[in-house]
């Protein structure tokens, strides 16, 4: 279970995340929605221990996120995922496997599994510098799926993908949801969120504006997009 309790992150005078508290239960598919600069990526970075909250706490299954043990069961893909250009897709995935303790045949099988899942079979031995944006995103997702993690943190996973890529990733995410994984998604594609997520929160200027099940949020307007625009417009005016 992900628990943020009065989490605040300040960068100098700027408060990126302001007193945010919420829980994401195990097996829940949660989406964090908000305009650019709302604090979504900052929250994800706190979950991964990349940055520490200025005050409050962020825990995963009761363990503070700054502890490395929390990252044993997390798969993460960043927005416009970067892969070292001097590595091949296979080497990149092998490093992920090795860092979570997989080696030899187990690592090999796991890499083959995730490469197939993201439809990159046959291209994994190529250098990442030659990959398109979409291919990098797929390999990034494959890296996140290595080791079958319990929690997936996806920061704009379909960013830069073509419609077919978006559909493929959506299908992968749906399959992951079926397998009972906890998924924490940051996305601007509200139609995608509407189709896939269980619960969502809208964040604006570092504060959670609303958090509820997707159905309850949609019930406040015609569609998720409608409700989102309504909230943000009201706050900005």
């Amino acid at each position: 279970m992900i628990v943020l309790y009065a989490a605040t992150k300040k960068f100098g005078r700027l408060t990126a995340v302001d007193n945010v508290s919420y829980r994401v239960k195990n097996g829940e598919f949660f989406a964090l929605l908000g305009p650019n600069g709302a604090g979504k990526t900052t929250i994800i970075k706190m979950l991964l221990g990349f940055i520490r909250p200025t005050s409050g706490s962020v825990t995963i299954n009761g363990v503070p996120c700054c502890k490395t043990q929390t990252r044993k069961s997390i798969g993460y893909i960043a927005e416009q995922h970067m892969i070292p250009p001097y590595l091949s897709g296979y080497e990149y995935l092998h490093r992920h496997a090795s860092l979570i303790g997989l080696s030899g045949k187990t690592a090999q099988c796991e890499i083959e599994r995730v490469v197939e899942t993201v439809s990159m079979s046959g291209r994994e031995k190529e250098k990442c510098s030659g990959y398109s944006k979409g291919m990098k995103q797929r390999i990034g997702l494959a890296g996140a799926l290595i080791g079958n993690p319990e929690l997936l943190i996806l920061d704009e996973p379909v960013s830069g993908l073509d419609p077919i890529g978006i559909r493929d990733i959506r299908n992968i995410i749906k399959d992951l949801k079926q397998s009972g994984k906890t998924i924490f998604l940051n996305s601007h594609l509200l139609s995608e969120v509407e189709k896939t997520c269980d619960t969502a929160a809208i964040i604006h200027n570092g504060r959670i504006v609303t958090k509820d099940s997707i159905d309850s949020i949609i019930a406040q307007g015609e569609s998720l997009e409608d409700v989102f625009v309504k909230y943000i417009t009201e706050l900005e005016n």
Partner: peptide, 15 residues
């Protein structure tokens, strides 16, 4: 930091 190596290592159980 620029090529994603830092994120690759530190998103895994590496101190």
């Amino acid at each position: 930091q620029n090529d994603g190596s830092a994120q690759m290592f530190l998103s895994r159980p590496v101190k």
